[in-house]
């Protein structure tokens, strides 16, 4: 039995599409039912998890496999086996701010983000000291309210940015969903995991 942690929310639809197309499942994983969905005849069970929790389940081995966004993986900093890029959940992690906003090297800019570690690493690599304020959602309102000068956040279509008068200043990372695997499971259930991954590879 393989257990696979999948993220609830916007990426699940694309995950379902891949799983159905690959023939790994015949019936889609439905978010509004149970949190653990078993497919006994396929020897698989899916765990519906908060995106940030997927790497945790894989690290502790309650899930053999996980589907996690690169944004989440960068933030948790765990050494997890990152096996394959699923090519779904495409977006970018970017530094955004108001029009004409520039980082003033004379003062310490404030940054709002859901990803404090990743943002910290980015500014460190640029040699810029910043003050990071962690928010858990609706990051875009921080500059509107005057709480911060900039934000570091996920951008896909850019619509939310536009609605809040914000502009993408610099792209930090390309984001997509990855297959992560528990290291011990990778060796102990190698054939099952290879079958799972190879079935997906065909439809990506």
């Amino acid at each position: 039995m393989l257990s696979i942690a999948v993220p609830k929310g916007r990426v699940l639809e694309e995950v379902n599409e891949l799983l159905l197309k690959s023939g790994l499942i015949d019936e889609e994983i439905n978010e509004d039912r149970k949190l653990i969905i078993e497919y006994p005849e396929k020897q698989m069970k899916f765990i519906l998890a908060k995106p940030m929790d997927v790497p945790v389940y894989v690290k502790y081995g309650v899930a053999d496999i996980g589907v996690a966004g690169k944004d989440v993986l960068l933030e948790v900093e765990e050494k997890l086996l990152e096996l394959m890029d699923l090519g779904i959940g495409h977006c970018r992690l970017s530094l955004c701010g108001r029009a004409n906003a520039e980082i003033d090297f004379g003062k310490m800019p404030k940054i709002a983000t859901k990803y404090p570690k990743t943002a910290g690493r980015y500014f460190r690599s640029k040699g810029q000291q910043v003050e990071i304020i962690k928010l858990n959602g609706s990051i875009e309102i921080a500059p509107v309210l005057g709480l911060t000068d900039f934000i570091v956040d996920i951008v896909s279509t850019g619509r939310t940015l536009k609605e809040n008068d914000l502009f993408e200043i610099e792209q930090i990372e390309d984001i997509s969903s990855r297959i992560i695997v528990n290291e011990a499971s990778f060796y102990l259930k190698n054939e099952e995991i290879n079958h799972f991954v190879n079935s997906l590879k065909v439809v990506i």
Binding site: K79, L80, L81, E82, L83, M84, D85, R178, E183
Partner: peptide, 10 residues
């Protein structure tokens, strides 16, 4: 070393 096979290929 960090088991990042995706980045290895990239």
């Amino acid at each position: 070393q960090t088991l990042d096979y995706v980045n290895f290929r990239k």
